[in-house]
Design a protein around this nucleic acid. Structure first.
Length: 587
RNA sequence: GUUUCCGUAGCUCAGCAGGAUAGAGCGUUCGCCUCCUAAGCGAAAGGCCGGCGGUUCGAAUCCGCCCGGGAACGCCA
């Protein structure tokens, strides 16, 4: 079904045409002067020069043609040449009714593509920390948005499980337990089933190893050697690696679940090892890759470049593969396995240049055709209140699990302060509302920008926050359950024509859902949805205050109100689901 | 140094296929609960949209040059 702005633009476009101008001048937008009108068209002013006449004359002629159009309550030409319009309540309500009956609430799904979203990017050698928050929740939301828009979306966590961090961890384990059979290359027996470390150990081993490698060149060399041994398939190293993966992945799943983040694929850099030798061989044979300073590289410079783009290193001079190698091989695998129309990478924006190199190298090496879109969404940093990257109170890197727990605990205290409810329910509500605070606080910002993590602001029930949105939904749920308890029947209720300004405003807010979803998809921008539901929640709350719903004496009108707020609830719940959280029944 | 992203109210952020008086929230000030959740609603105050030029009838939005901040720039991811 068509979007409201499309429908209005068509009407106005027709009027332009009838007046002897081009139809495209009739583009209608939401008014930026709500005090003057609801919708506006600025097309007359653009035409003035071409037709050498005053824009107001054109606007006047067009407005006249629209005078009896049933879509509008009023159409007015205003100096210097604006066409100001107010919608007829019946027309708007009719649109909302159709929208509410549509499976996708009025969003058209013209094409369905296979899209792979590569997000999360945790490293199995390290515990998930705050730096893993943004890729997880932005990616998850984008995945939901694309699915809603009818695409076949595959989310891949794409773990870092094959690079130097693995070598570092193994080296440190060897330091501590040199007698383990994994390090004895003459050992031929079965390796132990139980891992020689716990998740807690792992969390501490990597930072220790990483620090040592920076100070101790010999240690660093051993780590690189261990990495290479793993990659070349030395049996003991593979067995130890399996333990690391098992321990780490089950812990990751547990934490991602708390964020409602769910991956379709738990692949990693290691997944595509089998493709690397042939891929590298082909690159050499075709001549796209050549040796430079001992490493194998692909030139990715282009004539149109405004800067020097260094070549993409495919194989390091020591023969080991790296991030680039596995990413290229992963592209090859994804194309072969899923034939995607698009692959979207969600990472820190510092990797912009890196992805530019990889994308170019992939195309140059013929790994993907030009039909496949390769996109990189680079997001900014989550900062503390001091404007610097977020740290714990003592300056360390905060574990993701602790961050989630902190916000949920804060929310718990807040709920207990405000309401007298039992602990179990408070706890559960706090988890739900706390998660909304965390996700909304992040996703309501444009992804590329850095943002300030401000616990107090995020958990506030006032302003543009997750809890405010949930509060609005809970309010609706509460009215509806009272309505049902009073004997009201939800089936067969229909939205009526608006009887007051706030009801009409609520409908106008609802009507831009399709527009919102389209821009969220085009721009891969969850914050568009946040802006939309914030407006919608405001419109609902204004309506709530001006309209007595349950005490409405006209039963038919009461039913229409209920139908309208229930539809509002559905739209709000659809949207928060796209953001990755849900609403409780009470709070 | 080069490239790139960002600079909007005291604070945190929207707006950017150019449009009429630049929007929210927080904070500040003032109203509103005999009534469906006041964790709410309404109102006031608060701005040379980093600066200077250009394109245009019209620029926060497009272009150029500056200034300020972040980031990246061959064997990390």
């Amino acid at each position: 079904m068509k979007k409201i702005l499309e429908l209005l633009s068509e009407e106005v476009g027709k009027a332009f045409e009838e007046s002897g101008y081009k139809k495209s001048a009739g583009r209608v937008s939401v008014s930026n002067r709500p005090d003057l009108c609801e919708y506006q068209c600025n097309g007359a002013m653009a035409l003035a020069k071409e037709f050498k006449c005053a824009p107001i004359a054109i606007a006047g002629a067009v407005a006249e043609k629209l005078a009896n159009n049933e879509a509008f309550e009023s159409v007015e030409a205003v100096m210097p040449g604006f066409i100001n319009m107010n919608l007829s309540g019946a027309y708007l309500a009719d649109y909302i009714r159709k929208m509410s009956e549509d499976e996708k609430y009025g969003v058209d799904l013209p094409d369905s593509r296979t899209i792979i979203v590569d997000y999360g990017g945790p490293n199995v050698a390290k515990a998930l920390h705050v730096g893993h928050l943004r890729p997880a929740i932005i990616g998850e939301s984008i995945k939901h948005i694309l699915k809603f828009m009818g695409h076949n979306v595959i989310g891949d966590v794409h773990m870092g499980d094959w690079g130097k961090p693995m070598g570092l961890v193994m080296t440190e384990i060897q330091e501590r337990q040199p007698d383990l059979p994994y390090f004895d290359e003459s050992y031929t027996g079965e390796y132990p089933k139980e891992p020689p470390f716990t998740v807690r150990d792992l969390e501490e081993i990597y930072p220790t190893a990483s620090a040592k490698s920076k100070e101790d060149a010999d240690y660093n060399a051993r780590a690189l050697e261990a990495t290479l041994k793993l990659q070349s398939g030395v049996r003991g190293y593979r067995a130890l690696w399996d333990h690391i993966i098992d321990v780490s992945v089950s812990d990751m799943k547990r934490i991602y679940e708390k964020l409602h983040v769910d991956f379709d694929l738990w692949n990693g850099e290691s997944t595509v090892q089998y493709l690397i030798p042939d891929m590298v061989k082909e690159m050499k044979e075709s001549g796209v890759a050549y040796e430079s300073d001992g490493a194998l590289v692909i030139d990715v410079k282009q004539d149109t470049d405004t800067k020097e783009i260094p070549p993409c290193i495919v194989v390091k001079s020591d023969g080991a593969s790296l991030y680039n190698t596995t990413d290229l091989a992963t592209i090859k695998e994804r194309v072969a396995k899923y034939d995607p129309a698009q692959i979207i990478y969600i990472t820190d924006k510092r990797q912009d240049l890196y992805f530019e190199q990889v994308f170019r190298a992939a195309r140059k090496a013929g790994l993907v055709s030009d039909k496949v879109t390769l996109s990189h969404i680079g997001f900014g940093t989550m900062n503390g209140k001091d404007g610097k990257p977020f740290k714990t109170r003592d300056g360390g890197v905060m574990r993701l699990e602790d961050l989630i727990a902190d916000i949920q605990n804060e929310m718990y205290s807040k709920i207990k302060e405000n309401k007298d409810i039992d602990d179990a329910e408070a706890r559960q509500t706090a988890d739900t509302v706390g998660l909304s605070a965390l996700l909304y606080g992040d996703l309501s910002n444009q992804a590329v920008k850095d943002y300030v993590f401000d616990m107090e602001r995020f958990i506030s029930f006032e302003g543009n926050t997750g809890p405010y949105i949930l509060y609005t939904i809970v309010r609706i749920k509460s009215i509806i359950s009272k309505y049902v308890a009073q004997g009201g029947d939800m089936s067969g209720l229909k939205i009526g024509d608006p009887v007051n300004a706030s009801e009409k405003d609520l409908m106008k807010a609802l009507s831009s859902f399709a527009q919102t979803m389209e821009s969220a998809e085009d721009e891969l921008a969850p914050h568009r949805i946040c802006a939309f539901i914030y407006d919608l929640a405001n419109a609902l709350n204004s309506f709530y205050h001006e309209t007595k719903i349950l005490s409405e004496e006209d039963e038919a009108k009461k039913g229409e109100y209920i139908a309208l707020i229930d539809f509002t609830r559905k739209v709000l719940e659809t949207c928060i689901d796209l953001l990755g959280f849900s609403a409780p029944d009470r709070m």
